[in-house]
């Protein structure tokens, strides 16, 4: 424990700026993955354990598209769309067959596909780790804000993610599609009886989840090394985020991601040996105080 460094850091604007922005960066990527996870759970009541693999696929698609086009905008859009298609196909051909079944069956299908996706990546891109490299636009010196260091790429990353978060919230809360999704989450048989094709709706929800995870992968690709199996650690963390924020709540995922990001960055200053543990400890505290998570609703 190193509480004096933590106190020093909190007393210095430079340190606060740097740590808060890096907390935002960690949190924002987590949010994109966790949002898809929580959305799928909210509507379909299944935990999509292949979600980490979607993130990995997004990163690998980004690598290839970036090598082919050299344009990072095309990379982001292409990787997100391609991953959305994978999500759609995965839901229509496989997940949709196990909805009514035992949770163990669903777990088994997901776990099987984690292995299949990991091995497909190995076959297509090779087992060794890859690095995409920073797009030339962002190869500039970092900015100094109040003495804190902020890289421009991370400003872009946080900006884009917040925009996506707001767009997602608007889609779910303000559009007809969002209304149908919310209704299906509440009472799928009624929605189905009212003439909505829930099969297509479920497919679209998975595609949206894939879109978000793929986007996160493409945003992470310039700064994280790509390996088969890279989805696993982000799956665990985004799972913690959804548990803290409340399963099924987008706002909860947003707040949970930010909290985890900040816990990590300030934790590494104050509790360098217990940063990981702090995250789990926080989850335990939240679960004791509010078993449904910060923004979770009681399941009727």
């Amino acid at each position: 424990m190193d509480l004096s460094s933590l106190a020093n850091c909190l007393g210095s604007p430079a340190c606060v700026v740097t740590q808060v922005t890096s907390g935002l960066i960690i949190g924002m990527l987590l949010f994109l993955v966790a949002a898809g996870l929580t959305l799928i759970f909210g509507v379909l009541k299944v935990i999509n354990f292949t979600h980490g693999a979607f993130y990995m696929l997004g990163a690998y698609f980004a690598l290839t598209i970036f090598q082919l086009t050299g344009s990072y905008v095309a990379t982001l859009l292409g990787a997100a769309l391609a991953t959305a298609l994978v999500g759609l196909a995965f839901e229509r051909f496989f997940m949709s067959r196990v909805y009514g079944q035992n949770i163990l069956m669903q777990l088994l299908v997901c776990y099987g596909f984690i292995l299949i996706f990991d091995d497909s990546v190995k076959i297509i891109w090779g087992p060794e780790f890859k690095s995409m490299g920073m797009p030339s636009t962002f190869q500039v010196p970092p900015l100094f804000i109040a003495g804190g260091v902020v890289p421009p790429f991370y400003l872009f990353l946080v900006g884009v993610t917040v925009a996506i978060g707001i767009a997602l919230w608007l889609v779910i809360e303000r559009t007809r599609f969002g209304k149908t999704v919310r209704a299906a989450a509440h009472n799928p048989s009624m929605v189905s009886a009212l003439g909505v094709n829930t099969g297509i709706l479920y497919g679209l929800v998975f595609a949206l989840g894939g879109l978000l995870a793929g986007f996160a992968g493409a945003l992470a690709a310039p700064v994280r090394s790509l390996t088969p199996g890279m989805g696993f650690s982000i799956l665990i963390e985004s799972f913690i985020v959804t548990v803290i924020g409340g399963m099924g709540s987008i706002v909860g995922a947003f707040v949970g991601s930010l909290l985890i990001g900040l816990i990590r960055t300030f934790g590494s200053v104050g509790f360098p040996l217990f940063t990981e543990g702090l995250m789990y400890l926080f989850m335990v505290v939240v679960l004791i105080a509010k078993p449904t998570g910060l923004f979770g609703k009681e399941v009727a």
Binding site: C9, A14, C15, T18, Q19, S22, I25, I26, L29, V149, Y154, A220, R224, S225, M230, S233, I234, R264, T265, G267, S268, V269, T275
Partner: peptide, 15 residues
Amino acid sequence: LFQPDYTEVVTKILQ
């Protein structure tokens, strides 16, 4: 080992 994100480490070094 195998940590995907080093941001907090990098900023700690900068501090």
